[in-house]
Design a binder for these strands. Structure first.
Length: 416
DNA sequence: CGTCCACAGGAATGACGGGCGG
DNA sequence: CCGCCCGTCATTCCTGTGGACG
């Protein structure tokens, strides 16, 4: 069979095999379903909390926390959407803005997003944060409205920057005469409270709503509701659905993960030309998701971070399964020489290692070796195959996977 | 029980490109 | 065009430290 007919065959099978999906969009995590099973309590509480704005009163600031995939974002959007409808219906001056702080990245961009919600145009950059905040305040006051600010993943902003934006926002009402602001803070990390200024904390968490993780049977219900919309009748076995729920439940009850598993399992089944999604497809989906996550993370690293990964890889290969900062830096220096680029300082490499640890590509642990100092002991969390695959776009990097560092040649002395 | 290793990791500072307003 | 401010990445300098060794 020549290439054309192979390709034709693939396309033909794809087109003719619509036995699996009815509507796969339903399984994406930005899809907002009409029903949110097992979140009735949170919907009611949030609804009660924001309801006063319909009568022109500012509502309490609300602090929402729970782990990823527990429905925080969905519930918030759900309630706010309904609030907006009701406000339009009775002509109440209410508006809101949803911002994902992690995606926005900086205080400036969070503020810029708030301005866009008020139809204020601010430049992408160039102004001072204070200036943008001022424009926001003035623009808001002119609108004579109650403005609800929903800050999702606010923990990411606070940890990487600071809580001064939150502080300013909680105090903004003092300087507004015609408008009012309420804040809904959403955090994945319960420990966020420890990072916050006590003043911010007390005013932000006038009310708190906790989202517990879903258990396996709750996840099963959620998946079932979505699967009815996403798959054709009888295209999904009960075993596959249960397995998705069980795997996600084992991993802190993450509904997003469960939905990902289900969607990818469906795609696997589709690609194989199967007419039914079975448990094997779910297991393969699990592998596929992890594989893609890691390769994508590796491929998107900066050159220096990639070199650090390679250095750890070579050390691990040579002396057992752990490496320490000093040795990594030595190998890293050699790799830089090989590519004729100037190496970064050890201080910088140390923070790169920490970043790679946060990404789950390395595992770094500070240990004391007593008389022999204090360092980080680093394990590699990815395989050679994955590194090869991720670095294959760059010829020079690909070659460095098989390179034998000179500083590791003679003394293969190993540390425990 | 103090010493001292081999770093950890905070703070201050700088270089640089993007993008503004005037 | 200039002067200014931003965010990002990096360097430099620094103080802190767990615990085996003597």
């Amino acid at each position: 069979m020549d290439n054309t007919s192979i390709l034709n065959d693939i396309f033909e099978r794809f087109v003719s095999n619509n036995k699996i999906f009815k509507d796969r969009e339903v399984l994406r995590h930005d899809y907002l379903p009409e029903k949110l099973p097992h979140r009735e309590e949170q919907i009611i509480r949030l609804g009660q909390s924001v309801a006063p704005v319909l009568k022109g009163a500012r509502c309490s600031n609300i602090f929402i926390y729970g782990k990823t995939g527990t429905g925080k974002t969905a519930v918030t959007k759900y309630v706010l959407n309904h609030l907006e409808l009701k406000a339009k219906e009775i002509n109440a001056p209410v508006s809101f803005c949803y911002v994902n702080c992690r995606l926005a990245g900086t205080e400036y961009r969070v503020l810029a997003n708030l301005c866009y919600a008020l139809h204020l145009t601010v430049p992408f950059t160039g102004l001072s944060v204070g200036e943008v905040f001022d424009r926001f305040r003035k623009g808001l006051d002119c609108l004579k409205t109650i403005f609800i600010v929903a800050l999702d993943e606010v923990d990411a902003l606070v940890k990487s920057r600071s809580d001064i934006l939150l502080y300013e926002l909680t105090r903004i009402n003092e300087t507004l005469s015609n408008s009012k602001v309420s804040i809904i803070g959403i955090s994945n990390d319960l420990r966020l409270k420890e990072f916050l200024d006590p003043r911010v904390l007390s005013s932000l968490s006038e009310e708190e709503i906790v989202f517990r993780p879903y258990d396996a049977s709750e996840l099963k219900n959620i998946l079932y509701e979505r699967a009815r919309l996403a798959f054709h009748d009888n295209a999904l076995t009960d075993g596959a659905l249960s397995l998705c729920a069980a795997l996600a439940a084992a991993e802190h009850g993450d509904a997003r993960r469960a939905l990902d598993l289900l969607r990818v399992a469906g795609e696997v089944a589709e690609r194989k030309g199967a007419s039914v999604v079975a448990e094997d497809h779910v297991r393969e989906a699990e592998r596929l998701i992890e594989h893609n996550r890691v390769v994508e993370a590796l491929a998107n690293l900066t050159l220096h971070s990639k070199l650090v990964i390679l250095s750890v890889f070579h050390l691990v290969k040579a002396n057992g399964y752990k490496a320490v900062t000093g040795d990594i830096y030595e190998v890293y220096n050699e790799l830089c020489k090989e590519l004729a680029i100037t190496p970064l300082t050890q201080r910088r490499v140390s923070t790169l290692i920490n970043e790679l640890d946060a990404l789950g590509l390395l595992n770094a642990q500070v240990v004391s070796m007593g008389r022999y100092g204090r360092t980080k002991r680093i394990r590699l969390e990815v395989t050679r195959t994955l590194i090869k695959e991720a670095f294959s776009n760059d010829l020079r990097l690909g070659q460095l996977v098989d390179y034998e560092p000179k500083c590791l040649e003679k003394n293969s002395y190993s540390r425990d």
